[in-house]
Design a protein around this nucleic acid. Structure first.
Lengths: 215, 215
DNA sequence: AAAAATTGGTTGCATATGCAACAGATATTT
DNA sequence: AAATATCTGTTGCATATGCAACCAATTTTT
């Protein structure tokens, strides 16, 4: 889902005339927001890529997510009264970002442009899918055993791709990270599950052999 | 955050005239939505309480959340093309619910009522805070050790309440559930942390003795 | 206040899993 | 193709933690 879906180039220009967004370029490595800033914008990455990280209560810097062209961030702070995002946001390559002030976003514009409405709908859509994604992720992480988390991920991907044999879009390292586990522990568990005849896989192609409750 | 915050009784009536919401009553135990239904509404619980549950890939029914008067649900599905919510929603007591069709919610109403805007802003606000909440929860659950998760929760509560000694609003059982752990394991870990002089607590009143990195 | 139910802490036990170190396989660079 | 770097699997080890069973403390019901 892209922030500007369903809005043509031409329409976009009108929209921008009314929203007068900030459009800024950043060099690779340049800081976009620091931890103590308030984020007042729905930000759209036109080009490049960025990284959001956060300081842990222990003081560890933890990567929250990496985003690239076409992605949107900042929408989580719309209308909240959070003065400090707690996020440190840095450009990973030369990047160009459009900042849409959200007060303006949600005021009816003087020109009454139609695509204003479309834009806010898109934002809501992006927020919805983020919520659903996060909820799914929590469900996975709440599972107490590694095996359950693996099966959850595999079933998720199977349903998503609607194929018996499906490709996991992660490296093992990323897969481990996603399910909150150690890489070697994941490898071990996968092997074990294969031996037990629960699943089969070769590289990133997986197949689930037994369904619910392991039967 | 309440869906109707900042909208007076009188204004609400006008708003309802324009949104013509469905207002339904349910008996305790009555089903509100089943797993296969599409949720087209932002639903507001006027009175009573309800429970959302979900079927696991293993076929287990898992409680997602319990909601009560003043809470809102369904906003996660706005403008998504999800045909089946996957949620089974049941009234836990006699309840009254207002359903706001979200197509109507996001169309400019013929009466041009001002509070329409306020309402959509509130929805966005609710979605924002849900996203932030879920993200925090994920951060916690992604921690690999029970101790880290406990400390995360405690620090969260400490910051929230901004007191050195703070009350955890959970029973031990709920606390364990929240951090995705076994209750007895949690008890054990808490004792251990107390012995080690990391934290102190009595019933639900906690105090963190040592800061980041355990020092 | 006696009885019953709920809640929290303790502990033994088996297992799961993080961690580290290494090896083989695969991909990338020279 | 040789050399190097990256990715994945394997394994030993120590520890963390789920689970079950039990007891003590607290709260609720009778």
């Amino acid at each position: 889902m892209n922030l500007f879906d369903g809005i043509s180039e031409n329409e976009l220009n009108k929209l921008f005339a009314c929203l007068s967004p900030l459009r800024k370029s950043y060099y690779s490595g340049e800081k976009i927001f620091n931890t103590y800033e308030k984020i007042n914008y729905v930000a759209y990455i036109e080009s490049g890529s960025i990284q959001l990280s956060k300081d842990d209560y222990e003081g560890n810097k933890v990567t929250v997510v990496k985003l690239s062209a076409g992605d949107t961030f900042g929408e989580a702070f719309i209308f909240t009264d959070i003065e400090q995002s707690g996020l440190s946001i840095v450009a990973l390559e030369d990047s160009r970002i459009i900042f849409l002030d959200y007060v303006r976003l949600f005021s009816s514009c003087s020109n009454m442009c139609v695509f204003h409405k479309r834009l806010t709908e898109n934002i809501v859509k992006i927020m919805s899918s983020r919520i659903l994604f996060l909820q799914t992720r929590i469900e996975l992480l709440a599972k107490k055993t590694l095996r359950e988390r693996v099966l959850y991920l595999l079933n998720e991907q199977k349903n998503l791709q609607n194929k018996e044999i499906f490709e996991i879009p992660f490296s093992r390292e990323q897969m481990a990270e996603y399910i909150g586990a150690d890489r070697s522990a994941l490898s071990r568990e996968l092997s074990k599950m294969k031996t037990e005849g629960l699943i089969d896989y070769h590289k990133n192609a997986f197949k689930i052999l037994l369904g619910g409750k392991y039967e």
